[in-house]
Nucleic acid binder design. Structure first.
Length: 171
DNA sequence: AGATTGATCCAT
DNA sequence: TGGATCAATCTG
């Protein structure tokens, strides 16, 4: 949650066969704990959600709707399942809006699932000292989780103001 | 608005 | 083993 907010303005860096892509994180969503019905781990610990119960700083990449990957990073302590979904970034001034498009642009797939993002290898975060005022970040309801009842109402999506919302509706 | 697409999960 | 589900995107 706080982690999600603090990730806004940080950079996601992807190093892949010789070239490096870096993007400023513009939108994220938090999925917090076993009670959060929108969190994949709320249905219990399975082969797929096992990583969420592990240590923080590890990636959680999965296929959705049979065609698109989503990139998350595990945030909380071991045994407490929580993650932050990276929804949108800005690469060299171009807005990549939507988790599926983001993973396509950065060539992220299942091979980067359970990746250690803390040792600067292939995929990691960087703080490039972008100043983000608290007033620059808006909180909104999460997207695509209407099934989650009251948890769907939680304002756990954070977006940098000024980045126009092209993916899905709402704001 | 509708189709697409396949891993995952749980009930037969 | 089969069917329902899904943190999305594209096309019309």
């Amino acid at each position: 949650m706080q982690v999600a907010r603090s990730l806004i303005g940080k950079f996601l860096v992807r190093s892949c066969n010789g070239r490096e892509l870096a993007g400023k994180i513009v939108e994220v969503e938090a999925y917090v704990g076993p009670q959060d019905k929108a969190c994949h781990a709320s249905k219990g610990r399975t082969a797929r959600t096992d990583v969420l119960f592990g240590p923080p700083g590890i990636s959680y990449v999965y296929l959705i709707y049979g065609m698109y990957y989503c990139l998350n990073v595990v945030t909380e302590r071991t045994e407490f399942p929580a993650a932050v979904l990276i929804r949108a970034i800005e690469i060299e001034g171009e807005l990549i809006d939507g988790p599926g498009r983001l993973c396509r642009a950065m060539q992220i797939d299942r091979s980067l699932n359970r990746w250690n993002m803390t040792d600067g290898n292939q995929l990691w975060f960087e703080d490039r000292s972008v100043v983000v005022q608290k007033s620059d970040v808006g909180a909104f309801t999460r997207i695509g989780v209407d099934y989650a009842g009251k948890w769907a109402q939680k304002p756990w999506r954070f977006r940098l103001n000024g980045a126009e919302c092209k993916s899905r509706k709402r704001s």
